[in-house]
Design a protein around this nucleic acid. Sequence first.
DNA 1: CGTCAGTGAGAACGATCGTTCTCACCGCTG
DNA 2: CAGCGGTGAGAACGATCGTTCTCACTGACG
Lengths: 187, 187
Amino acid sequence: MEQQDPRTRILDAAEELFYGQGIQAVGMDAVRAASGMTMRRLYQHFPSKGELVEAYLLRRDGRWRASLAVYVSRTGGSPREQLLAVFDWLGRWFAEPGFRGCAFVNSLGELGAVSPAVVAAARHHKAEFGGYLAGLAEAAGAPPATAVHLTLLAEGAITSAAVHGDPTAAADAREAARLLLDATPAR
Amino acid sequence: MEQQDPRTRILDAAEELFYGQGIQAVGMDAVRAASGMTMRRLYQHFPSKGELVEAYLLRRDGRWRASLAVYVSRTGGSPREQLLAVFDWLGRWFAEPGFRGCAFVNSLGELGAVSPAVVAAARHHKAEFGGYLAGLAEAAGAPPATAVHLTLLAEGAITSAAVHGDPTAAADAREAARLLLDATPAR
DNA sequence: CGTCAGTGAGAACGATCGTTCTCACCGCTG
DNA sequence: CAGCGGTGAGAACGATCGTTCTCACTGACG
């Protein structure tokens, strides 16, 4: 309830609305109302909807990857266990109320053909995620190709969970990942 | 150039525009112009944009799966080879000009929160695709879980190819699928 | 020839959106 | 107290969208 930094309040409102309903389906007035702002102050912080969308994606990317990294590192297991913990984290995410798939994939489908900034944000997000998995895989002694395979499994699990509204895709992907890790030499 | 069935002409125009630019980004007037119709005739065949979108998704689902099934069955290989041929077909699709990911995932991100018909179309499409892979897997003597794993790989490849604009995701997924098929007993 | 159902072409309508403007009001400085 | 820079609240503006309406015209039929 306490007053926060206006930018944070706006981004919080924008994230909930944009992610939950789609970017084009949410008008600036809805963001204004949800953030308890006046129109003037809203445009003072984000001079256009496009810049607000960009900031939303940028902040979400950082939060998402940080949350994943914290969860995985706290498992404290071997690198191999950490790789599998990624899929556990995905499963928790899928089960969150309001889960609606990957915000970057969604915004790409909506605005990718029209907004280069959205395309760049999505590519950056996915590239960073792939890089993170590649780092874990290297620590686990798995070949780089395996990291790519696990990335595809994670991506597929996100899409599948979003489409079917079923979080078990994470467990399925985890099992496939385990098989792939077993199928390739641990260095 | 020859005159086609009006419904087909409208759906052709709608598919190209909706898939290429996103549904919300395309106005009915653009569909009218691209199909060489008058407004009256357009609304005569599809009384609302929602019904046009539904028809677009429905027809695309049928075409997409038929094209895949034809390609796979024409390989004439063993069931196992047919399973891998699915990923070859994906690779060809990814390399097509104008490829922009899965139309159903895209429309789901755009309209899923607001249109139950779009959600149903996406679920149906993905369920049918998963069922198709399950059938091939069973013929190949692979356990049902393997079919699920391959489905996740295919899904991930589609997303990855769309985000990075890189068709090689299909080959990566194919390699992972091969490893998974080798890792599980062929009955 | 006269009538009329149906069409083509596009204007019109009402809603909504992103963005900007108005204006009354507040607190500060001289 | 007089003046003024900045704010809140929301109306206003111009564009666009989905959908419907107008109207002149055509061709078939009596």
